[in-house]
Protein backbone atom coordinates (compact mmCIF):
# COMPACT_ATOMS: atom_id res chain seq x y z
CA UNK A 1 0.00 0.00 0.00
CA UNK A 2 1.20 3.53 -0.76
CA UNK A 3 0.85 6.46 1.66
CA UNK A 4 -2.55 7.58 0.35
CA UNK A 5 -3.96 4.06 0.57
CA UNK A 6 -2.64 3.69 4.10
CA UNK A 7 -4.29 6.93 5.17
CA UNK A 8 -7.56 5.92 3.53
CA UNK A 9 -7.46 2.61 5.40
CA UNK A 10 -6.88 4.48 8.68
CA UNK A 11 -9.89 6.71 8.10
CA UNK A 12 -12.17 3.88 7.06
CA UNK A 13 -11.12 1.89 10.14
CA UNK A 14 -11.90 4.92 12.29
CA UNK A 15 -15.42 5.08 10.90
CA UNK A 16 -16.35 1.40 10.85
CA UNK A 17 -16.84 0.31 14.43
CA UNK A 18 -16.88 -3.41 13.74
CA UNK A 19 -13.97 -3.58 11.29
CA UNK A 20 -10.32 -4.05 12.29
CA UNK A 21 -7.72 -2.12 10.34
CA UNK A 22 -5.80 -5.34 9.62
CA UNK A 23 -8.79 -6.69 7.71
CA UNK A 24 -8.96 -3.78 5.27
CA UNK A 25 -7.14 -4.27 2.00
CA UNK A 26 -6.83 -2.06 -1.07
CA UNK A 27 -9.21 -4.38 -2.91
CA UNK A 28 -11.84 -4.44 -0.13
CA UNK A 29 -15.26 -3.28 -1.29
CA UNK A 30 -16.42 -0.65 1.17
CA UNK A 31 -20.09 -1.62 1.23
CA UNK A 32 -20.08 -5.32 0.33
CA UNK A 33 -16.91 -6.45 2.14
CA UNK A 34 -16.65 -3.96 4.99
CA UNK A 35 -20.38 -3.51 5.65
CA UNK A 36 -20.50 0.29 5.47
CA UNK A 37 -23.98 1.82 5.49
CA UNK A 38 -25.04 5.24 4.25
CA UNK A 39 -24.24 7.12 7.46
CA UNK A 40 -20.78 5.50 7.48
CA UNK A 41 -20.21 6.61 3.89
CA UNK A 42 -21.18 10.23 4.70
CA UNK A 43 -18.92 10.08 7.73
CA UNK A 44 -16.01 8.80 5.59
CA UNK A 45 -16.56 11.50 2.98
CA UNK A 46 -16.44 14.20 5.68
CA UNK A 47 -13.22 12.78 7.14
CA UNK A 48 -11.57 12.30 3.74
CA UNK A 49 -12.48 15.83 2.68
CA UNK A 50 -10.95 17.19 5.86
CA UNK A 51 -7.83 15.07 5.65
CA UNK A 52 -7.05 15.66 1.99
CA UNK A 53 -8.56 19.14 1.59
CA UNK A 54 -10.77 18.25 -1.33
CA UNK A 55 -14.41 17.92 -2.20
CA UNK A 56 -16.02 14.58 -2.95
CA UNK A 57 -19.35 15.03 -4.75
CA UNK A 58 -22.19 12.57 -4.39
CA UNK A 59 -21.85 11.63 -8.08
CA UNK A 60 -18.15 10.82 -7.49
CA UNK A 61 -19.11 8.51 -4.66
CA UNK A 62 -21.26 6.42 -6.98
CA UNK A 63 -18.14 5.46 -8.98
CA UNK A 64 -16.20 4.36 -5.91
CA UNK A 65 -16.36 0.77 -4.71
CA UNK A 66 -13.06 -0.26 -3.19
CA UNK A 67 -10.46 1.25 -0.90
CA UNK A 68 -8.18 1.53 -3.91
CA UNK A 69 -10.87 3.46 -5.82
CA UNK A 70 -10.91 6.03 -3.01
CA UNK A 71 -7.13 6.38 -3.06
CA UNK A 72 -7.12 6.71 -6.84
CA UNK A 73 -9.84 9.35 -6.71
CA UNK A 74 -7.77 11.35 -4.23
CA UNK A 75 -4.61 11.06 -6.33
CA UNK A 76 -6.49 12.14 -9.44
CA UNK A 77 -8.04 15.10 -7.64
CA UNK A 78 -4.60 16.11 -6.33
CA UNK A 79 -3.03 15.84 -9.78
CA UNK A 80 -5.79 17.96 -11.29
CA UNK A 81 -5.49 20.77 -8.74
Amino acid sequence: MDEVEKKVVDLIAEVLVDVNKENIEPGSKIVEDLGAESLDIYDMIALLEDEFGLEIKDEDVEKIQTVRDVANFIKAARAAS
Partner: peptide, 10 residues
Protein backbone atom coordinates in the same frame (compact mmCIF):
# COMPACT_ATOMS: atom_id res chain seq x y z
CA UNK B 1 -22.76 24.56 4.99
CA UNK B 2 -20.30 22.06 3.45
CA UNK B 3 -18.47 21.84 6.76
CA UNK B 4 -21.31 20.26 8.68
CA UNK B 5 -20.69 16.68 9.67
CA UNK B 6 -23.25 13.89 9.06
CA UNK B 7 -23.02 12.70 12.67
CA UNK B 8 -24.12 16.05 14.06
CA UNK B 9 -27.85 15.29 14.18
CA UNK B 10 -27.62 11.90 15.92
Amino acid sequence: PKGSHPLMIP
